[in-house]
């Protein structure tokens, strides 16, 4: 099990003042939701946490070791990321795509074994895309591709799961399915850290929440203490009405008038 810390981290959003330094501690068993309006730096934060972008100041620490001192391969065994946008310049099947999740675990001359195939198969089944395993990625719908991307992360099987808008393109049923799968993973000892657009998904499934403001301000903590209507209205500059359903608060945007 692994823990991801940030020490006085200021992410590098071009053209923005430094803002509030982040001292997060993402631990096994936690499900984090990052909320904020467009351009608040959610994706930049995620990429910085994965070591793909340099921080402006401060640092990211994975199990007591600063991320920048670790090899990419060692990071990838502990920490994985589902991107919001994906490139596929060359045709690839769903199974091949899921199998690249095994890359950090295989030595240069090693090829994927039956065990790797099984892992990929199980991950695809968990996301209801196993029936597509021989299809080309380019022939799938947006939601199916999103689920393949999450299945790839599941095949990679890192301790820390970073996800950029994991419910993008998903229908309602699969939104719930993916969120409960992520929650199951954190219950089993993974640490999950994801950007979300949907307040209500965060309220329903996240144990911790980070609010990112466009000016670089931030606050974070347990979900129930962070998801206050006043804070959220300020975050999105949008009037909200709160109701309760299925034991969780539901925030409904209303027009200001």
């Amino acid at each position: 099990m692994s823990t991801l810390h940030t020490r006085d981290l200021i992410i590098n959003v071009p053209g923005r003042a430094d803002g509030f330094p982040l001292n997060l501690s993402v631990e096994p068993g936690q499900t984090w939701g990052v909320l904020g309006p467009n351009g608040a730096g959610k994706t930049t934060l995620l990429h910085t946490l994965a070591g793909l972008l340099p921080a402006r100041t401060g640092r990211v620490v994975l199990n007591d070791a600063p991320l920048i001192e670790l090899k990419r391969r060692d990071i990838a065994r502990k920490l994985g990321l589902v991107f919001q946008e994906r490139q596929d310049s060359f045709p690839a099947t769903v199974m091949e795509t899921a199998l690249i999740g095994r890359h950090p675990w295989l030595s240069p001359w090693e090829s994927e074994q039956a065990d790797d195939q099984t892992r990929a198969q199980q991950a695809l089944a968990a996301l209801d895309v196993d029936h597509l395993s021989d299809r080309l990625l380019s022939t799938l719908s947006g939601g199916e591709r999103q689920r393949v991307a999450i299945a790839t992360l599941m095949t990679q099987n890192p301790d820390i799961w970073l996800l950029d808008e994991p419910t993008n393109h998903l229908d309602l049923h699969h939104q719930v399915k993916v969120m409960s799968l992520l929650r199951d993973q954190s219950d089993a000892g993974k640490a999950v850290f994801m950007c979300l657009h949907d307040l209500n998904l965060a309220a329903r499934w996240c144990s911790h929440v980070l609010l990112l403001y466009p000016n670089g301000d931030a606050c974070w903590g347990p979900a129930d203490s962070m998801l206050k209507p006043s804070a959220l209205e300020q975050l999105y500059n949008q009037k909200l009405v709160t109701v309760e359903a299925d034991g969780a608060p539901v925030f409904v945007p209303v027009s200001a008038g």
């Binding site: 990419r72 065994r77 060359f90 690249i100």
Partner: peptide, 20 residues
Amino acid sequence: RNLNVLARGPMQAAALGVSV
């Protein structure tokens, strides 16, 4: 195999442990 991962884009490759 690194090249296979790189074909998915440099960011994805880095996230999967490739020194791009």
